[in-house]
Structure formats: C-alpha cells, structure tokens
C-alpha cells in the first residue's frame, strides 16, 4: 500500500482505534471466500490498479472516473465506528472523499431517487467468485436513497490507517456509511448508477427477512441470528482484549442522520 496525502475530516468518535492488524485480518468479503481470514489470505492476486468507476443512470453528465480523478475530489480522514450485522464493531480511520462531491460532478436528474452500486466481477482474481460453490450472486450490489448517498457522513473510501486500502478491505474504492451495518459498505466498486426505483441489494435479495434495504444500525431490531442490543468491540490482546458495549441507534450517528428517517417506522424499514 502507498501512503496517502489527506486533510483531517473532522470526524472522530474519540474511542480507541482498532489495531490495524485486526482491521486488516478479520474481514467479510465473500468475493475472496466466506471465512473471516479468507479475504486477507486469498486476495494477493487481485489488481486494484488501474481502476475506474462508471457513474451513469439518471444524470446529466455520465462519466468514468479513474482513481486520480476520485482522489482529486479531496481526500479526508474520517474516523468512524463500524458496526457489523454480526454484532462486532471496530473504529477505523478511513481516508476517502465525500460521495456527494462525486454526485455533484455528474449532476443527478430530478427523477433520480436512489443510487445503485456494483462490485467488480473477476473470477480469475477473486477465488470466492469461481468454482463449484458460489455463496452469492455476483456482482455484489448495494443501494442507498439519494439523500443518504448525499449525506456528509457518506464517503467513498480509498484508504485506511494513512495508506491506500488493502485488497481485503475493498481496494481500491469502497463505500462507507457509518450509521449502517457493514454489509452496506460495498467494496471494489466499478459502477454507480442513479435510478428512480429502489435498487437491489445483495443480502436483502438473499434473505429479505434478515437484511433490510436500509440496514440502519438499530439495537431495538434483532437479527434472527444475533441480538443487536450489544456489540463486541474488536481489539488486540486476546480473549480479554475485546469488550462488549451497548449498540447505539444509528451506531451513534443519530444526531446527524435520524432526520433522514423522520416519520418512518424503523422496525418495518429495518
């Protein structure tokens, strides 16, 4: 990974940052395998450079952005909590650009209501995408409402811990929406499309009763497999280094984002 130049982004929960070794070795990235250690172990063949993202759909100026063009939008460091639907969490110093800044460049049409994202499909470089057993339908897809996508907290991350993203964390560019469960943070993005209708999202399509489109962190709505009331904060130091803590609504970003969902029943729209 290369070092990155960035400015402070003004977000810091002032909680202990997860050790880099943990954040880069305990990952969900099914394109490289379903085990937590698979992404770090099996992503060495993946080439995140050169890269470009096509931004199209209901926009005035569809365009392709390469990494330099994306970084030119202004790299900032954002230290965010990250909460996985599996009831564990980390604190990660991301480096990225505001998604709103990118959307401004392509000038969304008035009819655009949603933003759809798509991950690359490269079976030759991604062992989870080849072979007899395919856990998910590729490409991995995700979506946000346009106002969620434009929210100041939403970034396209191109780095963490001062450097470019490691392959296992979604190199070269991934989505980060810190008030939502981690699976919304689609990795290795190749396409962003503005749409009028709510786009599909991979986990929601697989198990709609378990994973909603919104996937806002919500301690009051349990997942059938995990209580969401508490979370295990990953940290170094073995069996007793991590700690359990109560999960906060919107992962602690309620002041910033609760307004997006005013009047919505968050138990129905989970």
């Amino acid at each position: 990974q290369a070092d990155l130049q960035f400015s402070p982004g003004g977000y810091d929960p002032e909680e202990e940052i997860t050790p880099e070794a943990d954040a880069t070795s305990y990952n969900n990235f099914y394109e490289f395998g379903t085990g937590k250690a698979d992404p770090a172990a099996k992503s060495a063949d993946f080439n995140p450079r050169p890269w470009s993202i096509m931004v199209d759909g209901l926009v005035n100026k569809p365009a392709e952005f390469d990494l330099d063009a994306l970084m030119a939008l202004g790299l900032e460091e954002r230290i965010y909590r990250m909460r996985c639907v599996e009831a564990w969490s980390m604190v990660i110093p991301w480096i990225g650009v505001s998604l709103a800044g990118l959307l401004d460049r392509v000038e969304p049409l008035g009819s655009a209501k949603y933003v759809a994202f798509e991950t690359i499909v490269r079976p030759d470089e991604m062992p989870g995408q080849r072979g007899l057993f395919q856990p998910l339908n590729w490409p991995y897809v995700e979506g946000l409402r346009l106002d969620e996508a434009r929210h100041p907290l939403t970034i396209l991350s191109m780095g963490m811990y001062g450097k470019t993203l490691p392959n296992q964390n979604g190199a070269p560019v991934r989505l980060v929406t810190p008030w939502k469960y981690g699976f919304k943070g689609i990795k290795s993005i190749v396409r962003i499309t503005l749409t009028e209708d709510q786009p599909a999202s991979t986990w929601n399509r697989l198990a709609p009763g378990e994973y909603g489109f919104y996937a806002n962190v919500n301690p009051a709505v349990d997942h059938p497999r995990w209580s969401q009331a508490t979370e295990n904060r990953i940290g170094g130091g073995g069996f007793f280094g991590s700690n359990d803590r109560p999960t906060l609504p919107f992962n602690g970003y309620g002041d910033e984002v609760a307004g997006l969902y005013a009047g919505m029943d968050l138990k129905a729209n989970f």
């Binding site: 937590k36 073995g238 069996f239 280094g241």
Partner: peptide
C-alpha cells in the same frame, strides 16, 4: 493474545 481479529469467536 496471538489470535488476531476476534479471538473468542
């Protein structure tokens, strides 16, 4: 402390 990630799991 030699299990990285989520040692308990």
């Amino acid at each position: 402390g030699q299990l990285i990630g989520n040692p308990v799991k």
